[in-house]
Simulated scan of single mutants.
Amino acid sequence: MKTREYELDFLKVVATILIMFHHYQQDTRVFFEGKINFFNGKFYFGLVVELFFILSGYFMYDYIKKIEEGYPFPKFYVKRLVRFFPLLFISAACYEVILNWFEQVFLYKWSDISISLWGLIITSLGIQAGWSLDNPVINNPTWYISVLMLCYVIFYFLIYIAKRLNLKVEYLFIVMIFIGMGIRDFGLNLPFLNASSCRGYYAFFFGVLFAEFLRKHKITKKETLICGLVPIILTLLIVYTECLMVKGIDYVMTFVYYPALIIFCKYGIGNILNHPFIGLMGKISFDVFIWHHPVNMFMIIAIYRFNIPCNIYRFRTMLIYALICWVVGTISYICIDKPIAGLIKRKFKYIS
């Protein structure tokens, strides 16, 4: 029986918090003097999303054999769509309401974003970015889900093609990594070949190959120690060295930093992180990610509209915002995510 990998849940929790801080500073344009800055600082924390893609690819590895044995595409894709659709729809609809409230309070549009039924539809379907459509910026952080859904489609059909042509599918995954890097390096902006999709391509398919590597290679204590030192050294270089690795830092994070961090967490401190509470936090982190941008918008409006004595430019306020996000995410998980998931499993056994 497969057990949950709590150490990876821990990484998801940490990554979610970093992304929340990143978007908080991005939306408020606040800069903390003498403190770490998650936006417009020395490091672009938006690259944490690459870790999400790697982990998503990692967890897809076990599906390779299933698909090779005839696992149908409708079942594969719909299972993932219904996993995301309810929360995507509800959060996007709430975001539309918040946008309307913002216009009424401030008398101008948030970042020139217009309320859009079309945006609500394609966001809910997980095709808002990376596909052949423009990103309507409806709960914009969920572009990650959109690109992830695209990666799932490509993942399935690469396995299907490899089986039909009697090829090793790993070669096709490597091709996708280079395609993603090529899109990024040459600045392509075409349907399915753009700045959003490329990040998913090279990180997601690397995650699949990384999972295969970890299953076939026994990690030694020496290798675990080295992997523990790599993130520390790279972090110090980023913090204390001007312009070091600025060009290609996303590749350094994807192919060096995050893999080393995953190995160290799994084989170095895995026993410390092996607790069901961390697993629960990992599950809730998805809801927190979905809701953190609407919560941020709501806070900004509410503070101004009701003259709440809370300075959004203080570091403490950002911590309060993070706590509120986790409360909202927990409520969402208990009242929306879990009940809907259970209902889907009972009513649609075909995709369970």
Rank of each mutant, 00 (worst) to 15 (best):
Y144T: 14
R305V: 10
M20F: 12
T241D: 13
E69M: 12
F45A: 11
F31P: 08
Y202A: 00
H293N: 13
M253R: 05
F39Y: 15
Y156D: 01
T16F: 01
N40K: 15
F255R: 07
K163Q: 04
I179H: 08
F10R: 10
M299F: 04
S116Y: 04
Y258M: 03
L47D: 15
R184V: 00
Y202L: 04
G279M: 08
Q26P: 02
W291G: 05
C94W: 09
I300C: 10
W118A: 11
I154S: 05
V30W: 08
Y202V: 02
T317N: 03
I138P: 09
L158A: 13
L343V: 12
A302H: 09
V147F: 00
G182E: 02
I138V: 15
I17S: 10
R184S: 09
P86Q: 02
P74L: 03
D250M: 04
Y257N: 07
V328G: 06
G342V: 13
P136M: 03
F289P: 00
I145F: 07
N166I: 13
Y257Q: 05
V82R: 01
F38Q: 09
E223M: 07
L87S: 05
D27Q: 15
D185Q: 14
N307Y: 05
I331C: 06
Q104S: 15
R305K: 15
T235C: 02
V208K: 01
F102A: 12
F102C: 07
L107C: 13
W143G: 08
I303Q: 08
T220N: 06
R29H: 15
V295G: 11
A93C: 11
L47F: 13
K109C: 06
A129D: 00
Y156A: 11
Y44P: 02
L47Y: 14
G228V: 08
I308F: 06
G207S: 01
F31D: 11
P231D: 08
F192N: 09
L188M: 09
C198M: 07
T235N: 07
A129L: 01
R316A: 14
C151P: 11
L158G: 09
T317I: 02
L167I: 12
I113K: 01
V327G: 10
K283G: 13
I331G: 02
N189T: 14
F155A: 11
K79H: 10
I324H: 09
G207W: 07
P294S: 05
D27P: 07
N40P: 04
K283C: 12
K168M: 05
V295W: 04
E50M: 14
R29C: 14
Q25W: 09
K216D: 13
E242W: 03
T142Y: 01
T142G: 00
N296T: 13
S196H: 11
L87G: 06
N40S: 13
Y201F: 06
Q26N: 13
N311I: 07
I177G: 12
I127V: 09
L190G: 12
N311V: 03
G130L: 02
F213R: 04
L87T: 12
M149E: 06
D185L: 13
D9W: 00
R316V: 13
F348Q: 12
L55Q: 04
N139G: 00
Y61C: 02
G268L: 05
P136Y: 10
W326I: 06
E170F: 00
E103R: 14
Q104R: 15
T241I: 11
Y24P: 11
E33F: 04
F38K: 00
M149W: 06
